[in-house]
Design a protein around this nucleic acid. Structure first.
Lengths: 138, 138
DNA sequence: ACACCTGGTGAGAATGATTTTCAAGTCGGG
DNA sequence: CCCGACTTGAAAATCATTCTCACCAGGTGT
């Protein structure tokens, strides 16, 4: 208890082979992927990472805001490396192809609604699901 | 294969004690509740319904559009009887209190985005989470 | 180099929600 | 009263995700 205590910052986070592998996998594909898919992908690529570690890593990346996480219509969590700014997604239900979209008007609208009802600590989710042109031409 | 085949309609759906119980439970509370909560509530009320049946019933009601289903931030499915028209929700993270909101502009916006990218069979989710005034005054 | 300490890993067990299985119950009509 | 179709529910089965815990790795102080 001397005084060497920077306000309980986020841990240093050591750069290990596993963490690098997960990040690279995310960087390699442009679509939303589940933890399991990442895990399998890495395994096939001969750069195996334990499933638990994949989950842990994705969670941290998501917390750090380096990747976006959302839930598919059946509740599964999927991840994707994304641009830093706040945005939403148009996601293909069958192949996961994703388009980032912005909607400043929507942001304002949600804030206004929350304010009007006195809700604090507000967050919102907005995702658009559909079938992309490629998957459509069965 | 005579000809007595009305285009495979939705089944008649028999009105049983269990189904009535679930519907009533939903009608009784104004907030989003999980299947487990409904199940427990009914049990305590002395009108026990099997957990599997609760799940089945909620699912059908949701498919029929008689109740709304959404996923909490940690992926759990919760249900609530709702007005027929399309709308979204402002939900309290801690007590489940819910406010229905409409945003015609948002609807138009999502459709426009989807169209612009050629996505078909489009659906969208939009929920606002926060802490309601009551829960806020710790 | 050496002993250490802390964080990181991973295999497998544990959780928890949701679904399925399947034998038994119910309903409505003939 | 009897049949067949629809329901039910307890228990088993799934599935994604988390936890446990013994073991490993890298940097530090000496």
């Amino acid at each position: 208890m001397t005084s060497t205590e920077p306000p309980a910052e986020s841990a240093p986070l050591r750069p290990t082979r596993q963490r690098r592998a997960v990040s690279e996998a995310l960087a390699a594909c442009d679509d939303f992927r589940s933890a399991q898919e990442i895990h399998e992908l890495l395994g096939r690529r001969g750069d195996p990472v334990g499933l638990a570690t994949v989950y842990r890593t994705l969670q941290r990346l998501a917390d750090a805001g380096e990747v976006d996480m959302l839930r598919t219509e059946d509740g599964e969590a999927v991840y994707r490396r994304c641009s830093g700014s706040h945005h939403h997604h148009l996601v293909c239900r069958s192949c996961g192809a994703t388009v980032e979209v912005e909607g400043p008007a929507v942001e304002r609208w949600t804030r206004a609604i929350a304010d009007r009802h006195g809700f604090a600590d507000v967050s919102h989710t907005l995702e658009i699901f559909g079938t992309c042109p490629t998957c459509a031409e069965s």
